[in-house]
Every structure is written in structure tokens, then in C-alpha cells.
Design a protein around this nucleic acid. Structure first.
Lengths: 160, 160
DNA sequence: TTAACTGCAAACGTTTTGCAGGCGG
DNA sequence: CCGCCTGCAAAACGTTTGCAGTTAA
């Protein structure tokens, strides 16, 4: 998306395979299908979407949930937000660190990057003897579009 | 807690009553009981805790969930995190703005305040034409205690 | 060969809802 | 009084799990 990509030496599939090996787990057709699909675009996604999109490739609901867990543990994806009652994921591997503005009205996720935030958090963690491993920052509000309601610009001299 | 309190002119109960009026809702015994209980301490809490603690005061599960929604809409409380599968709430009214370090091991929530974060976010929002209303920042990692595993400091010259 | 994997359906835990009676303003 | 409120039990929701057959290594 807008933030560009990070140079990576290993494909997500390979990285996942390496992770699986360290855990004595196996690369299966289903897992390969899921990683490939997930990393075929940089969109945010939810479990339910994958389930529907991968149904015709014969990947079951359970396998998708189970694999998402592994992908998260492998550091390939991460939960970025919660919308309605569902977890929203995105790539964590091969994608620069960033956070999100979340429109309460239309649900759009706008990515942004601000070095300062990580800096501040590093300091805070140090002050508390906290070993920081990551963070999730959700900024709520109204996006540019939803701010100005009268999108329906009434053509002058209509009825009346 | 550690961050002190904010000077407020209106009690939470009063503020809630005002909110209810603007929405044509009513202050009932159950709602009063809940607000009072929630604001009797500054602890983080979950719905289930309230349900158990207020059972003897005859407040039902449904009423608690329904009231939590109202309290959140009224700006009296906010969701600060999700632990296991449950939402964690805290006071939003009469309590200074802050964020949390969350220990992945013991679940402790450590509050911290950093002016810089709000500043940065204000700038980011402006740049995106985003009308910011609030944010939720969860910093994951290991707390001071859980960092150093050998808490069981073996007394020198014990066995052996 | 064997331990990990899969799909299915049933189970789960939290949160929501329909309903019939109760009560605040 | 009217319309919002409550408790109850059942439903809904996303997610997890037990199981018996399947498959990677």
C-alpha cells in the first residue's frame, strides 16, 4: 500500500516452512495455500474472508483458524485491530512497522508510520523494566470522507 | 492509582444521568448500582466480574452488558484491552489519559502517561484529514517480574 | 511408519436478543 | 399512563476442539 515494501531475502512461504521445521510441524497443501493467498496482496483481512475465499480450494474453517495462529506465532502476520467482534490481521513480515487510523463510520483502516511512537515506547518500557515485544495502536475517529456529511451535494435549483 | 486523579466538577452518577436524559433514557436502581460500583475504585474490570459482584444486589447479566454499552457511549468508561476473549474496561471520566503495558505472561496492566503520544497522533490525524476521537494503545511484552524467571533465588550454600 | 494433519460437527465462552411483566417520569 | 427497563432463557457470534480417517517426511 502507501507505505512501500521492505527488502526481504526470504519469501513468506520459506519463512513459514522454516518456522514449521523448528516446531516439528509440517508444510501441507492447505498451509501453503493459505500463506500464498494471504501474501498475494497487502490488504487487511479477517478469518471469515479467508474461509470463504479458500473454500473452493478445499481448505476448511478449522484449518484456517489453526494456521492463522501459526502464522502469527511465526511473526508473519499480526492482529491489528478488532472490528465488530472479529480480529483483523495484516502482514507483519516484509512490511514496515506502522499503525492505523480507524474510521468508526465506514470502517476504513488508514495506515501511518511515525518513528516517534516507537521511540517513546522504547523509553517508557525501559523506565518500567518492561521487555517490549510489540504494540497495537488503534486511533479512532472519522475519516476525511465521513467527516463532511453532505456528500450529497444538492444540485442547485432542483425541486422547489 | 499511580497516575493520580483529575479534578472534576460532576460525579460519574450525575454525568451518567445527564447522558441518559439527552437520550431519553432513565436512571434506574440497576444503573445507579452499576455506576456506583464501577467508580468505587480505579481498577480495570471485566463484565464477568461485575456480574458476580453485583449478583447479590440483584443486577442481571443482561442489564450489566446493556449498561456497560451506555457507560461507554457516555464517555464514562472505555475498553482498554482484550484479555483472553474478554473486553477489559476502565474509567475514562475523571481519570487522566494514559495507555498500558500488558504483560503477556501474568496479564498485569501497567499504566503510563506520555504527552508525546497524543501530540504525535494529533499531527498524524491532521495530515490525513482525520477527526480523531480517541485511541487505544496496547504495548505487549514481559513485565519486570516475569522478565527474570529465576525468582526462586536459591539461598546460597543450601543443599550440596 | 508414525506423528502430525485434516474436515466435520459439536462444543465453547462471551455477548446479544426476544419476550412478558415491571416501573420511572 | 406511556414507553423504557428488567430478568430470564435462548440465540448468536466468532473461535476452538474431539475424533476418525489422511498424509508428510
Amino acid at each position: 500500500m502507501s507505505l512501500g515494501e521492505v527488502e526481504v531475502s526470504v519469501t513468506p512461504e520459506e519463512k513459514f516452512r522454516e518456522f514449521l521445521q523448528t516446531k516439528n510441524l509440517r508444510m501441507t497443501r492447505e498451509r501453503a495455500t493459505i500463506v500464498e493467498h494471504v501474501f498475494s496482496s497487502h490488504e487487511h483481512f479477517e478469518a471469515e474472508q479467508l474461509i470463504q475465499q479458500l473454500a473452493e480450494q478445499r481448505v476448511s474453517r478449522s484449518t484456517i483458524y489453526r494456521t492463522l495462529k501459526h502464522l502469527e506465532e511465526a511473526g508473519l502476520i499480526r492482529k491489528v485491530a478488532r472490528q465488530d467482534a472479529r480480529d483483523v490481521f495484516e502482514h507483519d513480515y516484509g512490511y514496515p512497522q506502522h499503525d492505523h487510523l480507524i474510521c468508526k463510520k465506514c470502517g476504513t483502516l488508514i495506515e501511518f508510520h511515525q518513528e516517534k511512537i516507537a521511540e517513546v515506547l522504547t523509553g517508557v518500557a525501559r523506565d518500567h523494566g518492561f521487555r517490549m515485544e510489540g504494540h497495537r495502536l488503534e486511533v479512532f475517529g472519522l475519516c476525511d470522507n465521513c467527516c463532511r456529511p453532505p456528500k450529497t451535494r444538492p444540485k442547485k435549483l432542483n425541486l422547489l
